[in-house]
Design a protein around this nucleic acid. Sequence first.
DNA 1: CTTTTGACGGGGG
DNA 2: TCCCCCGCCAAAA
Length: 115
Amino acid sequence: MDKTTDNQSKSFFNDVYEVVKLIPPGRVTSYGAIARYLNAKGAARQVGWAMNGAGKLKGIPAHRVVNSQGILTGMDYFDKGHSMAQLLLEEGIEIENNKVKNFKSYFWDPSSELL
DNA sequence: CTTTTGACGGGGG
DNA sequence: TCCCCCGCCAAAA
């Protein structure tokens, strides 16, 4: 498949998906945290961008990814039958006003916890 | 090739 | 606390 000496990371997207899939249930992380884990600190936006299609894909708990404020920013991007808040609630995460309650308590930093 | 966007983050008023 | 602007960086048009 590789035509040249391509190594890991075919694309930023791929990396993001992998990390998101590693997010344990009942936990949430932020775009910036993921970006930072990928050594792309300033690419927090691209992380969310990558999730654009992830919301409909399966196996990618995009609902566990929120912004640094703990707000479910992509909630409108999810299917209405499986809204972001709904999935988080099922995982035991309290949501209030489209925002994760005790966000800090549920926060999962890949750079810290995952190693 | 250039231009725009975008589920962000942080700083300033 | 709320609102606005800037910066970062990569993909899409």
